[in-house]
């Protein structure tokens, strides 16, 4: 009886190990895994039909805390290229990369793309920092994709990676990057004109996700719901914010979709400011389906909720 117990356990192990034949890979597209859907959208725009892109993070998830499920290891194991945010945002990716056993995407390998290379990083701490400051990023603010201009650096990094992986299609990627940037430039002109009423508008955001966006489109983020990055709201800080909202005449409270709305709503109720859910990533809310429509959605949500004078 007891011996049978072991046999019962060992049998499936052996069966699973030996009886499974490798799954044939017919498609010859470059398999790219990205940390966030924004990077996936840009990679897809550049890679066209030569790439197959999968994003580990989803737009409705907090990019700081993506659960590192083993199913992502399978995606990484089969990938030829990895595009990550870098700057310490996606540290959850490190253990997944290591577990994948795929040297093509290890740090320093041709298929490893850190999209933050070349970005003029904001909020780089110019002194020794520690965790008494909360989840502060030692390499600067990592939410850089929220300035469309930074897409020129992101796309340069991605193209460089694609060329390392697939040098034969280099011209194709270059051409598509130019097309992408031209479209982006067009859109950006529109966005900047559209965003004119946002200039100088004082807002509060939940997390410090918006410095790049803020500088490009002229908003002014005067405070954060989090007392320190990654630290949940406290009653004392909320009281301070209520005062701040009144003092600075803040009309909008921007909230990323992955936070609890209770504190923002409380502040709104106390002050008359309006809480709006603004997606910081592609897929964060319905309608933000790619990198372009992400900015359409963000600006649209800000502008329609802007109080009329």
């Amino acid at each position: 009886m007891k011996k049978q117990f072991f046999k019962l356990l060992l049998m499936p192990m052996i069966l699973v190990c030996l009886a499974l034949c490798p799954v044939a890979n017919a498609a010859n597209k470059i398999k790219v895994v990205t940390a966030l859907p924004d990077l996936a959208s840009i990679t897809q725009a550049i890679g066209g039909d030569k790439v197959e892109v999968f994003s580990i993070g989803k737009g409705y998830q907090d990019p700081h805390f993506i659960p590192p499920k083993p199913s992502f290891i399978v995606k990484l194991k089969n990938a030829q290229m990895l595009v990550r945010v870098g700057l310490g945002l996606d540290i959850w990716l490190d253990s997944l990369i290591r577990s994948s056993g795929n040297p093509k995407i290890y740090f320093g390998a041709p298929g490893y793309v850190d999209a933050s290379i070349g970005i003029p990083v904001l909020e780089f701490p110019n002194r020794k920092i520690d965790r008494s400051l909360g989840d502060i990023h030692a390499l600067g603010n990592p939410h850089y994709w929220l300035d469309p201009v930074n897409a020129k650096y992101i796309s340069a990094d991605i193209v460089a990676g694609l060329k390392r992986v697939d040098p034969a299609d280099g011209a194709y990627f270059d051409q598509r990057r130019m097309m992408f940037l031209k479209e982006l430039a067009n859109k950006l002109t529109g966005w900047i004109h559209q965003a004119a009423p946002l200039k100088g508008v004082r807002v509060i955001s939940y997390h410090d996700s918006w410095p790049y966006f803020e500088r490009r489109f002229g908003l002014k983020v005067v405070g954060f719901i989090e007392p320190k990055p990654g630290i949940p709201p406290t009653p004392k800080h909320t009281q301070y914010l209520i005062q701040l909202v009144r003092q600075e005449n803040v009309k909008l409270i921007m909230m990323e979709p992955y936070y609890l709305s209770s504190t923002p709503k409380m502040i709104a109720a106390a002050t008359g400011a309006k809480v709006i859910v603004v997606p910081p990533s592609v897929g964060g809310v319905p309608g933000a389906n790619d990198y372009f429509s992400l900015f359409d959605t963000i600006l649209n949500r800000l502008l329609t909720n802007l109080p009329k004078k």
Partner: peptide
């Protein structure tokens, strides 16, 4: 630009 490490 586009290098693996940058030098920012």
């Amino acid at each position: 630009a586009g290098s693996l490490l940058g030098g920012g």
